[in-house]
Simulated assay, not measured.
Amino acid sequence: MTNDHQRLVSVETQSEYNLTSGKSETRIFVKMYVDAVKKGLIADIGPERWQTLCVLSSFMNADGECYPTQEQIAGALNVSRETANRRIKSLCGYRWQDRPLVIKKQGREGKSQRWENARYTILPISQLAIFDGDTEEL
C-alpha cells in the first residue's frame, strides 16, 4: 500500500440517501494528481483508452476486480457494444512501462461452451485504487 500522495489516480465512492424519493444514489469520483500527467501515463495512454480505463474502474472493487457486462461498459461509454469491445481490446493490449494495466479473463461455461462474462482485473501499475486498494510506486 502506498501513501495517498504517491498515487497518481484514485477512485472514490460516495453514497447518499434521498429522503424525498427514498432512494440511495452512489457517486463515483476519479481523482487525478498532477504527477499523473508529469509521469506521462495519461499522455501516453491516449483519450479513448483513458476514458475506457476510468469507466472500467467505476465497476471495480478494492482488489481491482470488475465484472461489468458489455452492455454496461457500452452504456457508460455512450458507444455501441462493438465500439466498447474494440476499446476494451485496445486497453487490454496497452502496456505502461512494458506491463499491462488491465487483464481480461474469459472462459467457456461447462458443457454449453457459451462464453462466460468477462472478468477484468485493473492492476496496481495503473495507479487506480478504490477505497484503500494497493497501487505500485512509480
Rank of each mutant, 00 (worst) to 15 (best):
G93K: 04
L123Y: 00
Y17L: 05
R81K: 10
S57W: 04
L19Q: 14
S90E: 14
N78V: 05
A43H: 14
I28G: 01
S80A: 02
V9L: 09
D134I: 11
G110D: 12
I73D: 10
Y67K: 12
V11D: 00
L101N: 05
T69M: 06
I73V: 13
D35G: 09
Q72R: 13
P68I: 04
S10W: 08
K31G: 00
E137K: 14
W50R: 08
T2F: 13
K105T: 14
E16I: 11
I28D: 00
S57K: 01
L8M: 09
E16M: 08
T20H: 14
G40D: 02
S90D: 13
E12M: 12
T52R: 00
R7Y: 11
E136L: 12
V11C: 06
D4W: 13
D132E: 12
A76V: 04
Y94A: 00
I45R: 01
P68F: 06
F29R: 06
D63L: 11
R114W: 13
K105A: 08
S15E: 14
G93F: 05
I88N: 00
G107W: 01
N61I: 06
Y120L: 01
T20F: 15
K31T: 05
F59V: 03
Q127K: 03
E71L: 15
R86F: 04
E116P: 02
L91G: 05
Y17K: 04
A36F: 02
D44Q: 10
T13M: 04
L77M: 04
M32Q: 06
P47T: 11
T20L: 14
Q72V: 07
Q51V: 08
A129N: 02
N117L: 09
E82W: 15
D98G: 08
L77W: 05
N61P: 03
E136K: 08
V79N: 11
R108G: 05
E71N: 12
T69G: 08
Q97T: 07
R108H: 14
T2M: 15
K38Y: 15
S126N: 00
G107P: 04
E65D: 12
L19C: 09
L19I: 12
C54R: 06
A129H: 02
F59L: 04
Q14W: 09
L41C: 01
K31P: 00
I125F: 02
A36T: 00
Q72C: 09
T13R: 10
N85M: 09
T135I: 08
R108L: 15
D4C: 03
Y120M: 00
S126C: 01
I130L: 11
R49C: 07
R119V: 11
T13V: 06
R95T: 11
R108P: 04
Y120S: 00
L101W: 01
E137G: 11
F59P: 05
E16F: 12
I28F: 06
M1G: 12
K39I: 07
Y33N: 15
E137V: 13
I130N: 06
C92T: 15
L138G: 02
C66I: 05
H5A: 10
